[in-house]
Design a protein around this nucleic acid. Structure first.
Lengths: 335, 335
DNA sequence: GCCGATCAGGGAACGGCTTTCCCGGCGGTG
DNA sequence: CACCGCCGGGAAAGCCGTTCCCTGATCGGC
């Protein structure tokens, strides 16, 4: 690997001068020398060692992003927004997948800290477990104490700037609409219990329906298509007379749709199905899924903006609105 | 940010000793001192500066991954495979999105080089433009010359180890099946022209159909749902009597399905539709999309394995098979 | 009891780059 | 003509760890 010293030697100048030319320092360098340095750089295919640079100058430029799983469409979309802003600002992004393992999440925070990242963006639902939260908080605090910036997406209980999707409000909208359409016997396909996203949406739904949701009509499963399918099967078997199924994310909704089709249940004539998130797939299934739209990419973009902007003294919290997307899978309750 | 010197001072030992304790060096350290160092580390919440470590020891541990766009399901899946293997081997992955801009791709190679990554994995279709390829090759060569490892996914013409999806063979299978079912008037929704993926799949399709594909029955567009939708509309308008539409990836296939539904064309009774890649969504649309399955995660996993394994002297090339997934969107040609 | 071997711990060099500080030379000015 | 100031360039001091090498001390053997 060619070093700056190699370049300087080849150009017949000092490393100081070479560095100045390469970084476009404000200190003027004679054209002749500049020329020689540039030529040497090209000939040696010199690329400065980013670690040495980082060590030599205080300024940190990369940003760490911690998501549950980038290949999940939800996070893929959030990440897109994060990346867009980061790229606009000339920041490199390191993406880490915690795969929903809180312990790995903590490890990754340390790893990002070791990388001297300028900011850490935590995306995705938080957990209810206080032990886990305390541990994570402790690490984030250690990071923030050294001047690191923290932004979280969709987690209430953490330090740092936050941008929150209107999970509760979106679910409330959904509940109110179901109620308006006469649905009274409603089953819920919920995500994993320990996630705050699950409980937030559940709470909003109950508020919108204007009645408590009996646990017997809720099934908890993974936030995946198969999870939704299994949970829907259980629910259907356990609760006769269901007129609507609320999936707490679109993947589960799609799974439910599939199961219903397999069982010959008509949607929405016999049973209505609604989802959450408005992922691209929601519009493409049949019947097209009625769902709650969350501005996912925007969530990411806002979070990255907060993370990169100068700290505003106090932690800033932004809430991004959710709205109902009417498609074909929701109809009036059958008489 | 606490440094090793801080830790050493607080523990009342030399930095050398502190370092040895922290890294579990083979050199023995008295329990008493070890204890003191560990306590200091905990109290100061010390995390070693990864950049300083990288500078101090020759060993490089992070791997760079360059994809078109992680939020595209195709790359999301490939990335999942890449990550899995990287994590198993204790490697951190830096993911970069080129957004299909060859120039940005070259920039990112340099950036990864600057980061001293142990290996670079290039995922996603290559380009036909020889200028672009030459430039990229030149940078990769510079990287490889300094001991960097390169692995590519789905690109023929680059140095380094390669793992290739059987694009051509998969398309051949598809073509043969269409022919068997009596389709003679076939339209193609192709991806961007400059991509080798597009031309490979086109070539395989023609081979399977056992007849050349007239350009008039091909429409080039983005590898997206909307691209597919638009291209399908054009094709339908331009070519009367079409009995089948081949989309060169599933997103385009889904777009086509949507357009056909909007126009009241029955699938597959009037027109058959097939896709490519077998992304999760393919099974969930109605009718479920017949497509060619590519082992995407496996592609990623193999590439990462090649990249991390000791170089085998010559560049290794692996091809992963494609197979036909029969679903509902393909039927016999109408009489 | 003395010498050499062994061992734990510390000093210091090193990795690659940036940046401050200093020096020599030039032009301008009185 | 002498002096001052400015300017371009280089020497060198870090940044933060790791590790080689050395030192001082302890221990074993004769």
């Amino acid at each position: 690997m060619a070093t700056l010293a190699d370049v300087a030697r080849r150009a017949g100048v000092s490393p100081a001068t070479a560095s100045r030319v390469i970084n476009g320092s404000s200190k003027p360098v004679a054209d002749e020398l500049r020329e020689r340095v540039l030529r040497a750089v090209a000939e040696l295919r010199y690329v400065p060692n980013a670690h040495a640079q980082l060590l030599a100058r205080p300024q940190r430029s990369v940003v760490g992003v911690l998501v549950h799983d980038v290949s999940d469409p939800y996070f893929a979309e959030v990440t897109r927004g994060l990346q867009r802003v980061a790229t606009e600002r000339g920041r490199l992004v390191i993406i880490c997948n915690s795969y929903r393992d809180p312990e790995r999440e903590v490890e990754y925070v340390d790893l990002l800290r070791a990388q001297q990242v300028a900011a850490i963006v935590l995306a995705g639902s938080g957990y209810h477990d206080p032990t886990v939260n305390a541990l994570l908080d402790e690490r984030l605090a250690a990071y923030a104490a050294t001047g690191g910036r923290v932004a979280v997406i969709g987690r209430h209980r953490h330090r740092g700037d936050a941008v929150l999707p209107a999970n509760e409000e979106g679910a409330r909208l959904l509940g109110a609409e179901l109620r308006r359409l006469g649905h009274r016997s409603i089953g819920v396909l919920a995500g994993p219990r320990p996630l705050t996203t699950t409980s937030d949406r559940l709470a909003g739904l109950a508020a919108g329906l204007d009645e408590p949701l009996p646990e017997a009509r809720i099934r908890y499963a993974d936030f995946t298509r198969d999870g939704g399918s299994r949970a829907a099967a259980e629910l259907l078997d356990a609760v006769p007379g269901l007129t609507a199924i609320v999936a707490l994310n679109d993947s589960m909704g799609v799974g439910a749709l599939n199961l219903l089709r397999a069982r010959g249940v008509r949607v929405p004539a016999d049973v209505s199905v609604v989802g959450f998130d408005d992922m691209p797939i929601a519009a493409d299934v049949t019947p097209a899924l009625t769902t709650v739209r969350l501005p996912l990419a925007e969530l990411g973009a806002r979070a990255m903006t907060l993370a990169l902007d100068a700290p505003g003294g106090r932690d800033r919290v932004e809430t991004l609105p959710a709205d109902l997307v009417h498609r074909d899978s929701l109809g009036p309750a059958p008489a």
